[in-house]
Design a binder for these strands. Structure first.
Lengths: 209, 209, 209, 209
DNA sequence: GAGTAAACGAGACGGTACGTCGAGTCTTTTC
DNA sequence: GAAAAGACTCGACGTACCGTCTCGTTTACTC
């Protein structure tokens, strides 16, 4: 695995000999079907058929529906860029709007909670899920907050983890539980609350003011 | 349904003739099995068997697994009492700790998210879920906040809905997604944040202060 | 449940509540498919599909392919009538020709050996097979021989079992192993051998004589 | 295959370069597995694994399970020596006992019928089977009978083929279908019947006589 | 107190999907 | 340049539940 030395390409990946095409077809089929029927109604059999692949090929590479969906989500979701304006509020807003877009306007909003719930009984898979799906979505916020703390704009002993839970949790909860609309306004209100402790006021009141 | 009026005993429930005992057995079996195997692995067949009941009897009264679980949850969860100390912070803390207990230390913590995710595709059921399961858990907070707003301790145009989403969302998110421990400290930090805009600091830092 | 009282029809057959139609459809499908694809290529799945029946319904009533085929064979094969001419040779010839017809000109000829071979490892099923499929085919011979022995036309201590094995074995062996044509002449030669100890001569030689 | 000429080692088999070892390992594995699990449960995959060989290597040299088993049987079974006592009855008895031993006390007894039944649908393989497995087992009888006919001890127009079918068929049938014990007595009774037309009497009766 | 209609337990039914195994083909890597 | 290794598509295995249905058999209400 030492880079720089030319010429040991065959050794690099001893596993996965010929699977590349099937692999991608399976992930693509999974992504499509997640959007069409959702997580609960997704079946391995359906994925295999859609991908033009034997069921065993799916099971060879993924031990369960959860594992398959984790990887499909990972490869389907874009990386979230880390903004660098230096303005904490502006950065958080940018990221927040991105997350809101993803959760409110793509299938991911429906899939992620179902996936999370389904994996709760399997700690190992749950960990995978957090590492592969959640962490990439939240690391941008973490970085922005940490840099701001370094600049002194935030307390240095800030509990970034909790802040994240609050921020992400509110968005999730709206999508998943309360069913209220998730709009860009939400990101704004949350940033106000987190940064200024400004309690949110009703949208209509804001409009009137 | 008005109790107290004498004399229409046969009319009270024109449907449900002999069902009472089976009804309760089914709900009890559902509650047990939810605790034992979780929402995903819960099957109607298993519930019927455990309850000593025919499968058709379950289907006669509940159209789906979701509907059954909603009712089981409702009858299994205790009502949350609305504290009346008049001290906003104390009230919120009391409620928060109650919610934390439920989500972190009872099967409900695992069932509710799975149920929510499963119902996302069925708006009608989702509405039922919110009315029957979520709303009773959160109405105490709403009342406390509303009374405080009436007393002038909070802005009168406060967006109570969002505040709720933030509060409940953070707890949910911890249980469901981030997997971090959910303790009483969490309730405290959240109340600090919501009421004072005090950004949370790391637990260790708090101890040192 | 007190016996003696007339009119307890419902108790008579506690099993098989509603299966009659499916039952027959399954046996019919099995018989058809045996003729079309043979024993080895017969699949439970194929039978279920052809019968318009769920796979589980087949498995509910028959534990294995072998058991299913045994019953299908039994209900598909006609009983062999026991001739009563009183002439031993004529009786044996009649029966022999019947067996030859069945083995040489119906699917049974191909199915029975395969079934037999497949069941060799399962003594219980093998016994079923002999009782249900073989015995009915050979009992006519046994009866004819026994009556002849009673009349004194054959030694009273005749080993009827072995005689049967020789007779039936030769026909089977031709069909199964040696692959030679099985014609009515075979029955004749066998009767000659068994009754007179007349060693068989080549067909052509017979024609010349 | 003409032995004796030395010196054309590379030319003899232009194919099969490194195959010899694999070849033998495959045949050995087949023989072992036939004895362990029988014909039906024998799988190419199992043979390949046991032989430490790729599945494709098996398929390269044998087109089907049947072909593989035919060759394995051939190389596993000993040649049957042709006795030369000049006494017809003694010769037949010797051979008969040999066959009885093979069919009753080695895996071959279970494998041959299953193999035969399985190959019935494939005339070409069936012919191979007869040539390679059956004929070597029966040619000794044929030779003995033919010599006896030449000596005038048997009719010159004897239908040796049928006699063989009767002899072998009876033994087969006992093993495969009737399930009765196959002992040396059987060979004796059969020889009596074939040579003398002496109808078989029950063993116990024999003992009493 | 008998008659009757519903709800009941039981579980068979036609299906779908499960996760596994083997068939027979094909490709890559090793010797 | 054949052979090991094993991934591939395909199809059947036998099982579990689905949601519907048909059975007798209780009840609980009517008359």
């Amino acid at each position: 695995m030492p880079a720089g030395t030319e010429g040991q390409p065959p050794v690099t990946s001893p596993e996965r000999r010929r699977s590349i095409r099937s692999h991608q077809a399976i992930l693509a089929a999974t992504t499509q079907l997640l959007a069409e029927v959702g997580y609960t109604a997704l079946t391995i059999e359906g994925v295999a058929t859609r991908a033009g692949v034997g069921k065993a090929t799916v099971y060879r590479w993924w031990p369960s529906k959860g594992a398959l969906v984790i990887e499909a989500m990972r490869s389907a979701l874009d990386m979230i860029p880390v903004p660098e304006t230096g303005d904490l509020r502006r950065d958080l807003l940018a990221i927040g709007n991105g997350i809101v877009q993803t959760l409110a306007h793509t299938p991911a909003g429906a899939v992620i909670p179902a996936l999370a719930a389904d994996l709760m009984r399997d700690p190992e898979m749950a960990e995978q899920f957090r590492n592969q799906v959640i962490r990439p979505r939240t690391s941008a916020i973490t970085q922005v907050l940490r840099r701001a703390a370094d600049r002194g704009e935030l307390p240095s002993d800030l509990d970034i983890g909790l802040l994240l839970d609050v921020y992400a949790g509110a968005v999730f909860y709206r999508v998943l539980v309360s069913g209220e609309p998730v709009t860009d306004l939400l990101a704004e209100q949350l940033v106000d609350l987190l940064l200024d402790g400004k309690a949110p006021v009703k949208p209509s009141a804001v409009a009137e003011a």
